[in-house]
Amino acid sequence: MKSFHHHLVGVNLVLTGIFLGVLQWSAFFQLQSNLAATALVWMLATVAWLLGSFLGLVIPGPNREVWWLASTTLGYYLLRWLAAAHVYDLRWLVPLLGCVAIMGGYAGRFFRCRQAAPGGAQNLFFLENTGFVVGMVLTVLALYWLSESAFAAIPAALALACFATAPRNPAAESPSANHEPAAPDAIE
C-alpha cells in the first residue's frame, strides 16, 4: 500500500507539473493573441506569475490545497474570458495580470503542500519540473492538432486529475514515513 501511495504521489507530482506548464503557456498565449505582443506585457505576466507563486508558497495557515487549485483553475478561465471579451484593450491589463497571479498561486501552494513528499525535495522538484516541460510541449502539440478551442477543456481536465491524485493521508506525509536518498557532503 505504501508503494502504491508513493507511486500515486509521483504521478501527482508529474501531473501537477503538466497542469502548471499548460496553464502558464496557455495564459501567455491568450495575452499574446488578445491583448498585445509587447515585451512589457510578457515581462509583467512573468512577474505576476512569480508573485502569485511566491504568495502561494509563503502565506501561512492551513494548506487548503483544494481551494488554491480551484482558484488557479478559475483564474485561468477568467483570464480566457476577459481576454476574449476585451480584445486589444490595455485597460484590462491589470485585471488580466491579476488572473495570472491567481494562476501562479497554486504553483507555490503545491510545493508548500508537498514538503514531505516521498523521495525528498530532489524527487519533488525533478518530477514536477519534468512534468512542466511535458506540459509546455503538450500545449504546443494541442495547439497543433486540436486548435485553441481545446483549451476550454484541457486545463479543467488536468486540474481534476491533480485533485484526484493528490495525497489525502496526513500520516503518510510525516518525514519518518519518507524514504530519502543518502546525502553526500553538505553545503553548510
Binding site: 512569480l50 511566491f54 510545493f111 508548500r112 525528498g120 519533488l124 518525514p175 530519502e180 553538505a186
Partner: peptide, 26 residues
C-alpha cells in the same frame, strides 16, 4: 535547491525548510 532543502531536513528532523528556501530562489 533540493540539496539544501534535504540537508536542512536531515539536520533538523521534523522540519520542512522548503518554504523559506524555495521562496529565496523565487
Amino acid at each position: 535547491l533540493p540539496r539544501l532543502i534535504d540537508e536542512a531536513r536531515r539536520d533538523e528532523p521534523g522540519t520542512h525548510p522548503l518554504v523559506r528556501l524555495y521562496a529565496a530562489e523565487l
